[in-house]
Design a protein around this nucleic acid. Sequence first.
DNA 1: GTGGTCTAGACCACT
DNA 2: GTGGTCTAGACCACG
Lengths: 132, 132, 132, 132
Amino acid sequence: MFQIDRMSEKPIYEQIIEQMKKLILLGIWNESDPLPSVRTLSRDLSINPNTLQKAYAELEASGLCFSDPGNGRFVSPYAVKILKAEQINRLDDIAEICAELALAGVPLERIIDCTRDAYHNAKRHKKGGAND
Amino acid sequence: MFQIDRMSEKPIYEQIIEQMKKLILLGIWNESDPLPSVRTLSRDLSINPNTLQKAYAELEASGLCFSDPGNGRFVSPYAVKILKAEQINRLDDIAEICAELALAGVPLERIIDCTRDAYHNAKRHKKGGAND
Amino acid sequence: MFQIDRMSEKPIYEQIIEQMKKLILLGIWNESDPLPSVRTLSRDLSINPNTLQKAYAELEASGLCFSDPGNGRFVSPYAVKILKAEQINRLDDIAEICAELALAGVPLERIIDCTRDAYHNAKRHKKGGAND
Amino acid sequence: MFQIDRMSEKPIYEQIIEQMKKLILLGIWNESDPLPSVRTLSRDLSINPNTLQKAYAELEASGLCFSDPGNGRFVSPYAVKILKAEQINRLDDIAEICAELALAGVPLERIIDCTRDAYHNAKRHKKGGAND
DNA sequence: GTGGTCTAGACCACT
DNA sequence: GTGGTCTAGACCACG
């Protein structure tokens, strides 16, 4: 369920956070669903429990999940809402890149085409992939 | 001329590289122009000379500048061409973000509008800002 | 009758203890009243019976209730007296917070106003709420 | 400079956070002052570097300090402002305790006296203790 | 030297 | 079983 790239410069715990956010956004993990336990997942992915603990702690700090000590960890009821709000900030990232591309002389048409393609691909993939 | 943000998580040497690239793309630094010396710049920015050395080494490695020992460092004649080629890869970054936004339910129109705005702003800013 | 917050960092058994103490202080549970049985309450709140057992054990240890084996658990005759004595220690907590607020520059007047308001609200609420 | 109680139920990293906040509020640590390094402090207090790292990470997450990797950690310019804002929420804690005391029959006068005493003691202590 | 990440393994409280 | 904290010690990037 998780792809860890140990050679990536991105820390493992961030890779996990990112993928878990995606699972929630895609609706594969829903409100109140239990998250895999620290021990189980650390064994399955062969990563240290502390590394996972750190990932979970950060998810919890952002309000995406909560822990019921002795019982498990669960997707927070606000998770999807929080993630959607978070994602909108990504528009700023796009704006920044567009500015760079403008300076580099890339034509606007090319950027928009790329945008459209990526968007539609993602939509298609979502419909087909929700039962993965 | 350079803005260093010590609170940023981005290493100082990368901040420098990024800003120097922008100066070249904007045409503020042109082919064969001399780059500020390590000593001068390190004093002006209150930065460790080693940090600057690292930034320059990386610029040289990418072919953006060359050093004429005893004379200084200069913008390479291929600099602009290299940078423009480099920038095109950023389209992939845009594609990735678009995919995320698609999942988050942001309408495509909104993304394209944002793209357009950022692009035109950058173009305008370039014309007016070349004399900075 | 009980509000369990599984997202709270406070353990469930403590949440229960706290709320039972309040019920006694408010006079909703009186001397010799029977406490709900572990089995019933654990079913009603969807809580592990062990958790409840732990809460009751602690209440018994503080002398707030006693168990009559085969008959049930009952509010101890000394319960209210014990609780009142216990509460006085909370003055120390107030003192500690006041010290912090003083350092933060909050004016004393504001603290006292807040104290007064909370006190009177509680008094009013008690009179009206005893029939809950 | 730091008092760690290893027997306390409060985690070490929280004890550290608390005391550092106090040092900033008291003006003993000021904007841009360097914080003790993870290694130095961990040696001085005989606690594991990771435990300190956790404390610092949390301070950083609240915006109270920032790290300049390879250089050190420094008190954020917003630290005092953030702390003062944070402290005001403690009024709610006072209100809650007052409500409890009201139910327990503690007279309001007693609470207010306690408040006043604690406040003035703290003020006195601050003036005298700033040069510790 | 600094901070950041990761591993390995321990202990505790809670359910 | 669960999560939370802590220790010990390693490695890396940065300045």
